[in-house]
């Protein structure tokens, strides 16, 4: 049916072509592309193909949280509108145009968030941020453009080196930025006025799924009585209700597993160039033995809502409990 169109490939090229695009937006864009190529003639065939495509998208990447937020939002929109279809072709055309206008609006979301968040950054304050988040960078850039004087500490985030990227962007905007070790969060927290993190996904209870390290930052911030703000576009709200770290869809048996002490087999497989555990980490481990003794490290963690002071979203500044309200509005 859509042999000639590969959603996953389309999604991946989108991400490569425009680095500014975020995962859920790219997901919706490729689903729209799928509709354009769809030759389905009946409603159920069409719905099936979309559901199948979003499933394939989700399983194509290791960390599917923000991607599935985009897929689910679009699917919800399609099903909600599927009841009063008069003409199948015109309906498809509407879906395509709505999808495309969403992609345009997605950018505007970030600007709106930046506008809402800027007043929270006070003159002379110091902000601690984590890794790289486009929307956090934009907020800080906007604050700098509004002539706020503030300094930024950014964690290196050794897994992706996102902190280094952030520092580059922020320094270019004229903001004094210092990169700190991930392990130095506790050390700097007393010098910090607020913590600002982005999000991969915002879950139903108002908690946060983000790059590994956010949770410990939140705990440190709470202990030091500093506000911890999350910044997220509303299309990153996902219908998950994780109860702890190991309740996330990204968790599997490999995550932080303990290797057998007898490492002969592992060492051999490393020489072949195929590490036994899918260790996507950038841990600077010297020897092969060190590397294989390392289980697969998690990419994201979950920050429970009681650690989050406020969420800056394009729907306004919300308390964590406001998130579930928005999700209910959409899925009721």
């Amino acid at each position: 049916m859509d042999k000639e169109f590969d959603v996953v490939a389309n999604y991946k090229t989108l991400l490569v072509e425009s680095p500014e695009i975020s995962m859920p937006v790219a997901a919706i864009e490729s689903l729209v592309e799928l509709i354009k190529h769809s030759k389905a003639t009946t409603m159920s065939e069409f719905m099936l193909s979309i559901k199948d495509a979003s499933q394939r998208l989700k399983s194509s990447v290791r960390n599917s949280i923000s991607l599935s937020a985009g897929c689910d939002l679009f699917l919800r929109f399609v099903t909600r509108n599927s009841h009063d279809v008069a003409d199948f072709e015109t309906w498809k055309a509407t879906l395509i145009s709505r999808g495309q206008s969403f992609v345009e609006k997605a950018d505007a979301c970030r600007y709106k968030i930046a506008e809402l968040g800027v007043p929270f950054i006070r003159d002379g304050s110091t902000v601690l941020i984590h890794a790289h988040s486009r929307v956090v960078s934009l907020l800080l850039q906007k604050a700098a453009a509004d002539h706020k004087r503030f300094k930024v500490f950014v964690t290196e985030s050794s897994q992706t080196q996102g902190g280094i990227r952030s520092a580059k962007v922020l320094r270019a905007a004229g903001i004094p930025t210092t990169i700190i070790l991930d392990a130095a969060v506790g050390y700097v927290i007393d010098k910090v006025d607020m913590v600002l993190v982005g999000a991969e996904g915002v879950v139903e209870n108002g908690g946060l799924i983000n790059q590994i390290g956010s949770y410990q930052m939140a705990i440190v911030a709470k202990a030091a009585n500093k506000p911890f703000y999350a910044v997220a576009e509303s299309y990153k709200f996902v219908r998950l209700f994780p109860l702890n770290q190991y309740d996330l869809p990204t968790y599997n048996a490999d995550t932080l597993s303990f290797q057998e002490l007898n490492t002969d087999h592992d060492a051999k497989s490393l020489e072949d160039g195929t590490p036994s555990s899918a260790s996507q980490t950038a841990l600077h481990l010297k020897t092969a033995e060190d590397q294989t003794s390392q289980g697969s490290n998690p990419l994201v963690d979950y920050t429970p809502p009681n650690y989050i002071t406020l969420l800056f979203t394009d729907l306004g500044v919300l308390t964590p409990s406001g998130v579930s309200d928005e999700l209910i509005k959409l899925y009721l």
């Binding site: 939002l73 909600r80 299309y235 729907l315």
Partner: peptide, 15 residues
């Protein structure tokens, strides 16, 4: 199409 939508809703992103 969607009488439920209010001025602020995720749904508006696609509406």
């Amino acid at each position: 199409a969607a009488p439920l939508t209010t001025s602020s809703s995720m749904y508006n992103l696609l509406g």
